[in-house]
């Protein structure tokens, strides 16, 4: 439990679980996704912005990011630095295989009305939640109390040599993407299949949106919208080579008490190559 508590506390610090719509998109963008050299390095940008991959709003803090290597072990982020609009960091791909860089948060959130009819939230806006204090800080008899088990993930993938799948294994906690098509084996003119899970079970009816990069140079978003099927699957036909931002969201009312609902958001950056 100690381990889980620490994970939750760390994860929730980013404040991504606080209530409210997220108009802006958080993304992590690798400069390369497919590498052939011995012992390669990849540099990344991480930011929050409206137009994807243009860092012009807020940096995404690197302290919330982690990386997993081909052996399933945690990998260090090097040279992390945060500027006005973006963070940057490097990853050393010492072992051939696939690496996942991610931000993962999961825990309880609550909202209610106090005796004056004012809306209250837990965790409060900008506050670091301490799961141990949930019971003492959330009044269980409050008016219109809504407790939700929330999760949020932001991911991207890079591969040295042959793609493999150890780093892609789901945690079975919260809302996750499990690649059926390998995320570093995406090619224009082909279709890719991804499965979404909520707490390890297929996330049925999740809404998925895919945006091609480069909105600055066109007039329409050219968003692709999909819904996961009965197996939690979506098939994505890439309209062309380039970088893509995928966003997905899921909600249901099948949570363990004290929560009454589950809610998950997922985002990932993919690179589709021409053949």
């Amino acid at each position: 439990m100690k381990k889980l508590t620490t994970f939750l506390a760390t994860a929730l610090v980013a404040g991504g679980l606080s209530a409210g719509a997220q108009a802006h998109r958080a993304w992590v963008l690798p400069m390369s996704t497919v590498l052939s050299s011995e012992d390669p390095w990849v540099t990344f940008d991480a930011a929050i912005s409206n137009d994807i991959f243009y860092a012009d709003y807020h940096p995404l803090r690197t302290r919330d990011l982690q990386a997993t290597g081909p052996d399933g072990e945690s990998v260090e982020l090097h040279n992390a630095s945060t500027g006005k609009y973006r963070s940057t960091f490097d990853l050393n791909l010492k072992t051939p295989g696939t690496y996942k860089v991610f931000l993962a948060q999961a825990g309880l959130t609550a909202r209610w009305e106090d005796e004056n009819g004012e809306r209250r939230f837990w965790p409060g806006r900008g506050e670091a939640p301490d799961p141990a204090r949930f019971a003492s800080e959330v009044p269980m008899d409050a008016t219109n109390l809504l407790i939700t088990r929330s999760s949020r993930r932001i991911e991207t993938f890079v591969t040295a040599g042959e793609p493999d799948s150890a780093a892609l294994a789901p945690t079975n906690v919260g809302f996750e993407l499990v690649p059926v098509t390998h995320p570093n084996d995406l090619y224009a003119g082909e279709s890719a299949s991804f499965r979404f899970l909520m707490d390890g079970e297929p996330a049925v009816g999740a809404e998925v949106s895919i945006l091609p990069a480069g909105m600055r140079y066109r007039n329409a978003q050219e968003e692709i919208t999909l819904t996961t099927d009965a197996d939690g699957l979506v098939a994505v036909g890439w309209p062309g080579a380039g970088r893509y931002f995928l966003e997905a969201s899921y909600a249901d009312d099948r949570a363990q008490p004290p929560a009454s609902g589950r809610r998950g958001s997922y985002a990932a950056t993919f690179e589709v190559l021409p053949l």
């Binding site: 497919v34 590498l35 052939s36 050299s37 011995e38 390669p40 040599g161 042959e162 793609p163 084996d185 090619y187 190559l273 021409p274 053949l275």
Partner: peptide
């Protein structure tokens, strides 16, 4: 040096995808 020349093997994208990466 250090097999640095391997860095660009991936740019032969089709060969890399079909089996070069193995």
């Amino acid at each position: 040096e250090n097999q640095e020349g391997e860095k660009w093997l991936k740019d032969m994208r089709q060969w890399w995808r079909r089996g070069g990466r193995k």
